[in-house]
């Protein structure tokens, strides 16, 4: 049995995503499944109407969908549900969450708890991604700037 687990999204969509070819013939459908070899650009203007995009991991070590996810989120501004399907394993969840996935389709056994744990596994990130977490370099810069501002305030006071 396949279950959908929520990441940051409260309730996963009940829609069934259409395969890309079928969706391209019916652009009014609100859910599509994109093969990992397809460019997200193919979604074109239809993107605005989509509520659910499923991206596929044929094997957990085929990482193309990570780039698709980041392009959809970061480049194309997609804000609907982004679902990881296929060989979705709990040890890849921290990466998926950072790339903008917010729901996960998974055959038994379910791993809802693992999704929650993955979000807090690492308290530090080193690079900007699609989860709005602040990278360590930026935290250091802000801390230095803050310390300098505080020092300036003290010397002015």
């Amino acid at each position: 049995m396949v279950t959908v687990h929520s990441g940051s999204r409260a309730v996963p969509s009940a829609l069934s995503p259409l395969p890309l070819d079928a969706w391209l013939l019916d652009l009014t459908a609100a859910a599509v499944s994109l093969p990992n070899t397809a460019s997200p650009d193919l979604l074109g203007d239809g993107l605005a109407r989509l509520e659910l995009i499923a991206l596929h991991f044929p094997k957990f070590n085929d990482g193309r969908a990570y780039s698709q996810a980041r392009l959809l989120r970061g480049r194309m501004g997609y804000r609907g549900e982004l679902r990881a399907t296929g060989d979705v394993l709990r040890d890849q969840l921290p990466f998926m969450l950072r790339c903008g996935f917010d729901s996960f389709e998974k055959a038994d056994p379910p791993f809802g708890e693992a999704v929650r744990a993955a979000a807090t596994l690492f308290s530090v990130v080193y690079q900007p991604a699609e989860d709005n977490r602040v990278p360590a370099a930026e935290l250091r810069r802000l801390a230095t700037a803050g310390a300098m501002a505080a020092a300036a305030a003290v010397s002015l006071g």
Binding site: F60, N61, Y66, R98, C99, Y126
Partner: peptide, 9 residues
């Protein structure tokens, strides 16, 4: 590059 979410696979 450390734990880069997009480039680990």
């Amino acid at each position: 590059s450390t734990l880069h979410p997009e480039f680990s696979f």
